[in-house]
């Protein structure tokens, strides 16, 4: 599978289908990890738990960048492709 983000390819690996009672995490280097534990991801900063239910979690080579904007109040979170 491939993932494109902001116009760049950020993932290109072979992805397995997990059994219905497991999840699988695939990293940008193609490392495959099956797990029966819940996986926590963050949707707009909110933690969301994915139970072991046959979900594929694709980890792309995108790292979050935190900007500290000192002249104004607030912290801004962004993410960019590597």
């Amino acid at each position: 599978m491939k993932v494109y983000y902001l116009g760049q390819e950020v993932f290109n690996e072979i992805v397995p289908v997990p059994p219905p009672n497991e999840n699988v995490i695939v990293t940008p280097t193609g490392k495959v990890e099956y797990t029966t534990s819940p996986v926590t991801v963050y949707i707009a900063g909110q933690a969301v738990t994915i139970p072991p239910n046959g979900t594929i979690i694709i980890e792309t080579s995108v790292y979050p960048v935190t900007f500290n904007i000192t002249s104004k109040s607030g912290i801004y979170q962004w993410a960019t492709p590597t």
Partner: peptide, 12 residues
Amino acid sequence: HIVVTDLKGNVL
């Protein structure tokens, strides 16, 4: 079912 995240688990 596929969830796509960055390296820190943030959903893209």
